[in-house]
Simulated assay, not measured.
Amino acid sequence: MTIVDFEPFVAELAVAAGEAILPFFRTALQAQNKNGRGAFDPVTEADRAAENAMRSRILSTFPAHGIVGEEFDDHQPDAEYVWVLDPIDGTKSFISGLPTWGTLVALEHRGVPVYGVMHQPFTRESFFGDNARATWRGRNHLGTEIVHHLRARPCGSLEEAVVMTTSPGLLDGDHLPRFERVASRAKLTRFGGDCYSYCMVAAGHVDLVIESGLKPYDIAALIPIIKGAGGVVTSWSGGDAAGGGAVVAAGDPRLHEAALKLLAG
């Protein structure tokens, strides 16, 4: 089975997650704090229901595959093929009633993300990528499906760049002042977005996303989308971003290089 053969199944997983999540959105859903009495890191029944829906389909269809997810223990993480799942990326936005959240599904082959999707069931849109191409799928006001090929926009100068991070409060240690060195040079800096920020890089509306403290399930699905649109995703040191940590994503390699220099000090 080639990588492209997994595409319909990836879409099936995203739809199954959306069907589990939507009944909870903008309801009186209560969130629990995964950190106990520490900093608020919410998890909801929607997160668990969606990940369970995806896991059950993977286990029944590809029992030899591994699964790494946010809400439950890893399953065969050293397998040749591993599914990396984040049922709701942007749970804080979700519980606030904001639509800037999405389901992230990545397929890794020998540790490399080869396919990713960000699916937003409320807005009925999906962002797909396989490192070589990226597409957006949605519907118009008549319900007709629309497909657009995504391409990141050229932007070689920080002074012309739109820069995003989810929250300055999530930039730990000395990451905040290093981020501010970049943001102070940018044309526009915006906060929020979670996975949407990365998809907007692929769509050509945002030029640079800088974050730290990410887990593998926060970024793995987004890497093939941005790369498929011609963008670049690495760690702040220029290494592999699939493991999470401090990540920078840019639509233009020139901008990526400029940002790395400032982030390194």
Rank of each mutant, 00 (worst) to 15 (best):
F9S: 13
A259P: 12
T165K: 00
F62Q: 05
S184I: 02
F94D: 07
G239H: 07
S60T: 15
I58A: 12
L29K: 04
G192C: 08
T44K: 02
E180L: 15
T2G: 08
N140E: 02
H109N: 11
I21S: 00
A246F: 00
V10I: 15
F122Y: 15
E7L: 14
Y196G: 05
A20R: 06
R133S: 14
L260E: 00
E211H: 01
S184W: 07
L176Q: 06
G18E: 09
D172K: 14
L85F: 07
E80G: 09
N33T: 05
F128T: 01
K227L: 15
H149E: 14
R139P: 01
A64F: 03
R181D: 00
S167P: 05
V162F: 01
R190M: 10
I67C: 12
L13R: 08
P154H: 10
N33S: 12
E159P: 04
V82D: 07
G231L: 10
L158E: 09
R190D: 00
G116D: 01
S60G: 08
V10R: 06
L222A: 11
C199W: 03
A50P: 11
G129A: 11
A202K: 06
V105C: 13
N35Y: 02
A203Q: 12
F40K: 05
F9P: 13
G244L: 02
G129F: 03
N35M: 10
G213V: 01
T123I: 14
V84H: 01
R153H: 09
A220Q: 04
G245L: 12
V182R: 01
V162R: 01
H119G: 00
A79L: 09
F72E: 12
P63G: 04
K227N: 14
T27Y: 06
Q32N: 11
F72H: 13
S60M: 07
G193E: 00
N52V: 11
G169F: 05
L188P: 01
D41C: 11
R37C: 05
A246L: 01
V68D: 14
R110C: 14
G66S: 08
C155Q: 10
G156F: 05
L158G: 06
P42T: 08
A246H: 04
G129N: 03
A258L: 09
D174A: 07
L170T: 03
E7D: 03
A46R: 03
N35Q: 13
M164S: 12
E160M: 11
E71N: 12
Y115E: 09
E145N: 06
E12H: 11
R137E: 13
A202E: 04
I223D: 00
P87G: 12
G97N: 05
F62Y: 15
F25E: 04
W101D: 13
N52P: 00
A152Q: 04
V105H: 10
M164F: 02
D86K: 09
G192R: 11
L85T: 07
V112M: 07
R181F: 02
A161N: 09
H175Q: 15
N33E: 08
L158K: 02
H75T: 15
L150I: 13
A11I: 07
Q76D: 14
V68W: 06
Y196R: 15
I58Y: 01
M200T: 11
S197D: 01
I88P: 01
G129C: 13
L13G: 03
W136D: 11
V105E: 08
D73H: 10
S235G: 15
S235C: 02
F6R: 15
Q32F: 04
E71A: 09
G66Y: 04
L142M: 03
